[in-house]
């Protein structure tokens, strides 16, 4: 499925500069080096980490989007940076587990 389709399933778009990007898997993690070491290109990255460094990590690891679980909020300058770097970010009110279960049925 494409990143854009997430909006139909309760994922709230915070910035979606690359809506046609295909989601090919899921990775869950908050430790950035683990994400860079283990996430695959195209994965939707589920995390509760919201500082500016997530944008660089998502860009370098080439994930399809960042999904901030647990309704975690994010600073506007992070969104601005993400937009400029073509990084998709969504917010989700449930847990990482809830999001993963939902995505498991969709992918």
């Amino acid at each position: 499925m494409t990143v854009e389709a997430l909006t139909e399933y309760g994922f709230e778009p915070l910035c979606v500069p690359d809506p046609d990007r295909e989601i090919t898997g899921v990775y869950i993690g908050d430790l950035l080096s683990w994400v860079m070491g283990r996430a695959k290109s195209g994965d939707a990255w589920l995390t509760i980490m919201s500082n500016i460094n997530i944008v660089a990590v998502a860009s370098l690891a080439d994930t399809s989007c960042i999904i901030l679980a647990e309704g975690v909020t994010i600073e506007s300058d992070v969104i601005k940076t993400a937009d400029a770097k073509d990084i998709n970010i969504f917010s989700f009110s449930g847990s990482c587990y809830d999001a993963a279960v939902l995505l498991s049925g969709l992918l």
């Binding site: 430790l31 950035l32 080096s33 683990w34 070491g37 500082n51």
Partner: peptide, 15 residues
């Protein structure tokens, strides 16, 4: 607390 310091940096560089 920023998500770094997991002790995976150098291993990732090698990987």
């Amino acid at each position: 607390s920023l998500g770094f310091g997991a002790g995976m940096g150098l291993p990732n560089m090698k990987r």
